[in-house]
Each structure stands twice: as C-alpha cells, then as structure tokens.
Design a protein around this nucleic acid. Sequence first.
RNA 1: GCUCACAUGGCUCAGAGGUAGAGCACUUCCUUGGUAAGGAAGAGGUCCCGGGUUCAAUUCCCGGUGUGAGCUCCA
Length: 607
Amino acid sequence: MSRKKMDAIAIKHNDEIIDLQTAAALGIEGEPIELDNSDDALEVLRHSTAHLMAQAVTSLYTNAKFFVGPVVKEGFYYDFKVDEEIGEADLKKIEKQMINLAKKKFEIERYEITMEEAKLKFGNDELKLDVLKRIPDSKVSIYKQGDFEDLCRGPHLPNVRNIRFFKLLKIAGAYRGGDSKNEMLTRIYGIAFADKETLKNHMTMLLEAEKRDHRKIGAEMKLFTFREEVGAGFPIWLPAGARLRARLESLLFKAHRKRGYEPVRGPEMLRADLWKTSGHYQNYGENMYFTDIDDVEFGVKPMNCVGHIKAYEHDLHSYRDLPIKYFEYGVVHRHEMTGALHGLFRVREFTQDDAHIFCTLDQIEEQITEVLDFVDKIMSTFGFDYKMMISTKPEKAVGSDEIWESTIQSLKNAMDNNKLPYEIDEGGGAFYGPKIDIKITDAIGREWQCGTVQLDSNLPARFELEYNGENNDKIQPVMIHRAILGSFERFIGILTEHYAGEFPMFVAPTQVAIVPIAETHNAYAKELSDKLIDLGADSEIFSKNESLNKRIRTAEKGRVPMIIVIGDEEVENKTIAIRDRRTREQSNMSESDFLSLIHKKINEVNF
RNA sequence: GCUCACAUGGCUCAGAGGUAGAGCACUUCCUUGGUAAGGAAGAGGUCCCGGGUUCAAUUCCCGGUGUGAGCUCCA
C-alpha cells in the first residue's frame, strides 16, 4: 500500500464510497478519501461517530437496543431505547465515554452473515429485527469495534481513533420508523468534523442562529407578537413590524405595476361550491376553514386563485389582451398542524404576494422567464443566494397525465433556455399543476423555501375560462400562479434572521434615531423628523428625561440603521452629527447632505 | 395530529401545600447632560383556563389552551 492509502479512510469506487474493510474483502480499488471536511469524508466520519455513540450508550446504560443511525444533512443521529431515562444533561456523560472509547483505538472490523443468521443473532432485539425486515438482501454486514457489534451497511472508518472532533447536540423523541402509531424511541443528534477549528466554527454558527431567532428579535424589536387568547398561528403585527412590512409592500407594489401587473382583490370567504369546482374542497379541504352563512356553506380562502379567476371572468378577453397579470397581497387561512406552527415561519393566517398570469400556451416560456427574472432581482437585492426545484405530480392531483407531462416540460424548457440550474422534486407539485420552488440561502447558510411558480391548466379547464382567438374561436388560457416572497410573514421572519435584526435602511422599521442633547434641541429634532417623513423615512426621537448616555445606549440597542445626535452646535449651524453604530464613531455633515443621503439610501432599491 | 417539557406583573426569570419576589420596562420627582445604563419614590399579578384531592392549591392530580423541541432526510 502506498503512503497515501495509509492515510485514506475509505475509497471512492464508481461514485460510491466504499470503506477500507469492504474494499479489502472484495479487492476493490479506487480514489482514496482522506479524513478532511469533504462530503464523502464527513459521511464516513459521522456514520462512525454515530456508532461510537451507540457503543458509549451501550456501555453506560442497561439493555440498550438500537434502531437506525444515519448521517443526515446537519450531522447524524441514532434512535435507540434503554431502560433508564436519558436527558439533556446526560449528553456530556455520553460524550466523555465516547472520547474514552476512541482512545482505546479499536479497529473497526466488518464481516458478513446471512439474513437467517442475523435474525438469529438479533433474535431478542425487536428494533434490529424491525430493521432487518426492511432489508431486501439475503446477506447483511456487521461492524465490530471492541466488544460492540452493530448491524450496518457502512461505510465506516478503519479505526475509532479517527473520531476526535464531535459534539452531541440534542436529545429528542422520535417514532420508530417515523410513524406516530409506533413507539417513541430516544434520538440523540450529533455532529462531527475532521478538525477542531471547523467544529468550533460550526458550534459558533449554531449559537449565532439561536441569537438570530426571529421570535426573540421580533419581540425585542416589537415587530410582532402572538397571544394565547387570539389563537395559535395568528400573528399580531406591532407598529414597528407593520412599518417594515408596509415598506416591503410599497416597494413591491411599484415593482409589480412596472412589470404590467394589475392589482385585484378577492373576498376572504367564498361559497363552498366554488371550492368544489376548483378542487380545493376535495384536495385541500382538510386544510381549510368552513362556515355556514344563512344555510349556505362558505370556505375561507386558503389561496387567492379563485378570486382572481372571478376577476378574469368579469370581462370577455381577446388574445390581444394576454397576458393578463393580476396581483394581490392575498390574506389566506390554512389549518396547519399544531406541532408545525413556528413563529412567523409557519402560521395559520398569512399574506401572500400572490399573482396569477393568464396567458396563451405560447406565452408560457416567456412569462416564466420574466417571473424568474423578477425573483432574481428581489433575492439579489436582499443578498440571498437561491436555487430552484421543479416539483412534479403528487399523489392527490387533478388533471390528466398528458397535461401534467406537457406542463412539466414547459417549465423545464424555460429553465433550460435560460441556462438556469434546477433539481427535481418528484411528487412535490401542487394538486393542480407542477411548480418551480425557490429555495434561498441566508447569511449563515440556512436554506428556506419562499417563492413558488406554478403552472396550471386544470383550473382554467374547471372554470371553463376562455379568450377569443384570432379567428374568434374560444381558447382556454393557461394560468401561472406565482409568489416571490411567498408570504410576508415567512419572508420577514427570514429577513430578520438573515440580517440579525439589523435591517438595511430601505426596509428598516425606523430609518433614523434622533437624539437631542438637551430639551432646547427638541424643536430641531422634530423639524428633522418632519423633513424625514416628507422623504418617506421614519424616525424616532429619544428625548425622554434620561441621561444622554442612557438615550444613546437605548438608540443603539434599537438596531436603527442611523443614529444622529444634535446639540447647540448642530442647531446653530444646521448640521447633524452621525454616529456609526458599529464603530461608535461620530462624523458631522450638513442637514441638506444628510437629507439627500437618507433619500438616496431609501431609494437605492428598485426591484 | 402524536410524544415529552414548560406556562408566575409589559419583558426575562426566581419561589414555596398556608393567596408572591428580582432585574428591565412603565409613572412621578430630582438631575439639564456632547456619544452604550445618573439618583429617588411609586404603580402594576384571578401565579394560563376548567375540574379534582386537601382544613387550605398558584404549588399535587386530570382535562383544555398556548409555547418549545422532535416526529421527513431509512442498517
């Protein structure tokens, strides 16, 4: 063996990670995988770390039985059960034991047995028997380190001593096989890296994510609140949050108008018959709220499309009118599972930046392209990277397979022709059509699902929509449903975490904090504040009867993008002193320069 | 929806089977200040809701509501 192979922890053969044990047994050769932070290396490392954890748990607790312990996106986990209760506090103890075991430098050995032998070997371990039931093969592999053995497909490290930089993160319950009908097992999540530095950075990131939690920052900045007496999942927007939201709304309103969208508005509740026509009643009914009015059943809208369809139906349309683009900040209600509710990210009432484009078949591609350009403009403005996914026909769906196939193809064409990369999510589409989902990546690397573009020929068919063609023939239009932010609620939640509450001036709830030094400067403060309102900027004057230091501190903590201080000098010379919140340094400028700076900053964004 | 945990002034939290406390915030007064907490006094709580156990429940038990974590990423 070459020196390089001595350092390898596994090899890559035919694009598959094969551990050294298996490679030796089968005589396979391939590219060496070294112990670094590459995806391949981490997969092996984390998998073995999960096993080391299992070994530690086995040695610390009685009657430990293990279910599955896979590597997942943010680390690894192992589901198991033991006779004792395990809590958060025990993680340290288990970690310590893992370190002790790693120091013993056990070789990780692999051998194969037949399914029958395995069933015999794990005869009194109902969890392993369950796992075995799910394996179609006639042979299974066993990995052994010290006196600990586990049924496992691998791949694994050659030796446990390679496991050094890891952390057990949390402990939670998880149903066996993810099915709530089954018993609850204990699940411990952990993470591992090749070096200390990366582990440390990862832990810092997790801490940072916690600090950025929009529920915490939202409360601190008085953006929104939830109240038990109001009901779960129904947000209350406080003045600061409502100002931020209004800024977003107005920026976006202009952007829509420039791109040829017309505002429309549908009612919150529509007769249930309409939801039967649309298919929502049958396919989405369990997420909807229904009520009776004078013995007629009504459904609260979970989507805005039906309202927009009714707007379309008001007129006869010519092919010359298309595309018709209707948009609405549409308030929708959806019955989400209680356990799924989470701050502004998952609520039961929210407002979508929703639009429906009615167009001809020929216009689909260009319209999709235009929407994707709109998406790009907005997401890059906020500094989000994003990627796109095409979702195909789900189990519960309306419309023929032919329609589905052709519409999916149009989406792919639009993406391909614009050289946009995408992934496919099989079965992830809406019940009425395929969609492109936009997943954005925030400042600390987390992914979020926001916008969505959905192609739909089913609703136009169900509602028998039509336009007059060149030969005065009746033709059915296609609908494109699209939302870019997704919902104001979720998007503002994401923005809050993305910026850690330090919003850029064009969306910040308050643009300027004005701190007058003494009472005699209040009048000038008010004068500035009025001028700012004329520019379209909000300010807050910190003139309470507190020490200057206290008021500066309060202003700083408010995360307002710009703080200005005014005293005798400023009043006399018509200047202002700007304080940089980050460096805590001051600089002076004339009032007019200041006002034009603010004007520039709040107008520098144009979607 | 399911499992577990939690629920005490506006916020963050302490506390005991005998009807409650701190810090911040709030109010008033003093302080009239040049860049991250000046001082004093004060107001504010059906201890989430309903039922049970008890001489006595905010505290223990049951149910509900709300919140948090997890339940999808398959040896």
